[in-house]
């Protein structure tokens, strides 16, 4: 019977697709692990890029990521609250959609935009611009998670608060937000994992720095931009350092990701 054969073929193809996806994941992680572990040694964690180490890169990446979070989280959560709790009209609906659009904005364009805004006028690359670019990448993700996590909080909870005579913003901050805490935390962790691995927004904002620095008004070191630069060098040592950096970066990103999922599973 012809139909049955078609059916079998399609099922087989679909299973193949899934195997392909998993295969590629393990292929990438596998090569990354092999290349990374060979290149990792104590030296790279205790030295900066100028001495073929990645200490300053890790620190720089985290500083910009954390700074970006400090900007994006309060603004993003507040925006999510507005969209879900206050907005009732069409304008809010448009804002929600625009925020979704921003989520898919090309990261290189965000980098170039911040270059035009904060690098060109100042006259030189700076870490602060890098953090702002990352914050712009992070914001829409935080807005959208907050918005959708708040939508899962049952109406009755708000009504109960109102029945007790609470004012609207107190109910939101003390009851609704608390009920959605786990989901929002997970969303923020995933958003952090996303921006900590970004390269394109940093290329023309923080650029890179060979040395350890905490001065955000000048060029700032990062793992991702360094990987991009090192991979283009012809010498083996630079490429190995790029692999080491890639391995560390991926491990950190995936661990934060899995941590986020673990939190939702256990407390959600």
């Amino acid at each position: 019977m012809n139909r049955l054969i078609v059916n079998k073929i399609i099922i087989a193809l679909s299973v193949f697709s899934a195997l392909f996806g998993i295969g590629v994941l393990f292929w990438i992680l596998g090569t990354l692990t092999i290349k990374g572990i060979v290149s990792i040694n104590w030296h790279i964690f205790t030295h900066d890029l100028v001495e073929k180490g990645i200490r300053n890169l890790i620190i720089g990446q985290f500083i910009m990521g954390i700074l970006a979070s400090f900007i994006a989280i309060p603004v993003g959560v507040a925006a999510g609250i507005y969209l879900r709790e206050y907005n009732t009209n069409k304008f809010g609906e448009i804002l929600r959609n625009l925020s979704d659009v921003m989520m898919s904005a090309p990261s290189i364009v965000v980098g170039i935009f911040v270059y035009g805004l904060l690098v060109d006028p100042i006259g030189h690359y700076n870490g602060f611009a890098g953090a702002i670019a990352l914050a712009i990448m992070m914001l829409p993700i935080v807005i959208s998670t907050t918005d959708s996590m708040l939508s899962l909080v049952p109406k009755e909870l708000r009504e109960a608060g109102i029945a007790l005579g609470g004012s609207k913003h107190k109910i939101i901050l003390q009851i609704v937000l608390r009920a959605a805490k786990v989901g929002i935390t997970t969303g923020i962790l995933l958003a952090f994992a996303r921006i900590i691995g970004e390269t394109a927004p940093l290329l023309f904002t923080s650029a890179n720095n060979q040395y350890l620095t905490f001065d955000l008004t000048h060029q700032f070191p990062s793992l991702t931009v360094s990987i991009y630069n090192l991979a283009n060098y012809p010498d083996e040592a630079s490429i190995n350092l790029a692999w080491a950096a890639s391995f560390i970066l991926t491990i950190v990103v995936l661990i934060i990701n899995l941590l986020g999922r673990y939190i939702t599973r256990n407390k959600g």
């Binding site: 998993i22 090569t31 995933l190 994992a193 691995g197 390269t199 991009y228 790029a242 990103v253 995936l254």
Partner: peptide, 24 residues
């Protein structure tokens, strides 16, 4: 497990895809 694998694939930073693409 398959869903998680697929989502992890989405979480890998794009520069890593670039490295893998270039060298493998």
């Amino acid at each position: 497990p398959v869903s998680i694998a697929i989502e992890l694939l989405a979480a890998i930073p794009s520069i890593i895809y670039g490295m893998w693409g270039l060298f493998y």
